[in-house]
Design a binder for these strands. Sequence first.
DNA 1: AGGGCTTAGTGCATTAATTCACAAAGTCAG
DNA 2: CTGACTTTGTGAATTAATGCACTAAGCCCT
Lengths: 230, 230
Amino acid sequence: MTQLQRRKIPDAAIARLPIYLQILNNLAVTNVLRFSSDELAALAGVNAAKVRKDLSYLGSYGTRGVGYEVTYLIYQIKRELGLMREWNVVVVGAGNLGCALAKFDGFLSRGFPVVGIVDNDPKKIGRTTSSLTVGDVADLKNIVRDEKVNIGVITTSSAAAQSAADALIEAGITSILNFAPVVLSTPSSVSVRHVDLGVELQILSYYEQMRIETGIKSDSSPELSKVGVQ
Amino acid sequence: MTQLQRRKIPDAAIARLPIYLQILNNLAVTNVLRFSSDELAALAGVNAAKVRKDLSYLGSYGTRGVGYEVTYLIYQIKRELGLMREWNVVVVGAGNLGCALAKFDGFLSRGFPVVGIVDNDPKKIGRTTSSLTVGDVADLKNIVRDEKVNIGVITTSSAAAQSAADALIEAGITSILNFAPVVLSTPSSVSVRHVDLGVELQILSYYEQMRIETGIKSDSSPELSKVGVQ
DNA sequence: AGGGCTTAGTGCATTAATTCACAAAGTCAG
DNA sequence: CTGACTTTGTGAATTAATGCACTAAGCCCT
């Protein structure tokens, strides 16, 4: 493969790029043309050196003494993250959360249109939510092929999550966002990200209890979470 | 403060304890009495030494040559995470996601009852979702006091998120779970965890693009996300 | 044209997290 | 009771991430 060797960017930096992108998009809307690493650092709640290092993984796109150009950096981050195109999403599990996500415009607006939602419950199959009709999980393979799905979102019960994952992988999906509170077993060629709301609350619980036990001296808990790392 | 100095547990370990707890609860249901660090490591998808080190932060509760007792470890993890009690949750923002979360039984079942949901939109105030009536965000202070709320969950639009956070903090809340795609500005005495679904998808997008560009040689993306860290 | 000012980029020290690898401590069979 | 076997607990090595502090570059004012 005579392909230009791709820069290896640390995972921790990759997880911050979407946050920067978010902020830069807001700056663009308010017609800000330029920003310095200090400014972005303040807005993102991180260290300025970290911002510069993170951005330097993209290439040397700043100007010393001046800063970075908002629109150009937006372009570069999007390019790096693979956001120059859309990625189609299928939701597996048409419960409360699954339906809420299917309706959620934050997905579409960020370039991740939800092109299908499926379930294994005959009572749910055929129902319509926003503009989608709930399909049969058994048809996943066809849906993935016909709708050119790239990413699977699992919002089933924890009992059904592993078989949902198996079905997605069988259908050729290699990126999964899992909301079910179970650790999925998947080949290492598949990327899985796990969002567990219970886990988030339990982590908060730890720091909250800590504050109570130590008499609210506080200041020991991290400002930002692991989701969208600080 | 003549309090027993609390063991300082690394943040990364704290974020894994809820995952272990999850798995142990499942083991308990299937009447498994004991487990070894190897077994738990396999189930959690992590290294066995990491499991042992994480559990050792709780104290020396294993037996060499034997392993750990399921129920005893569940007890110890819950104690450490502050899960011997319930923590009351209020949801700010009664949109799709907020209502889905208010209904979500995963919160209650893990000891985080949702005791209130509020919004600032007069059209939404007064509506009933599951067993809750949407209150006015202006009453947040009273709700927090009367319902003994410990944790605030923000599911507003990104435009409204900062003022929602300010209102929560003003009402005395020190733990916030934020779903809005903005970085909140908060005093360091407040713990904030940020779950941004768009960010999760964008991270997946990066690794997906990487696989495509490098010709699906794969194996370079992390197995588990930062939310509920590996 | 030049000097002062600002800010990116980065080498290096530090800190945090992970993993290895082994001694210590226990079980169990005979 | 002894010796083989298992598995914990943890120092020490390694790897990853962070943040400092300085150099290099470019702007702007005079």
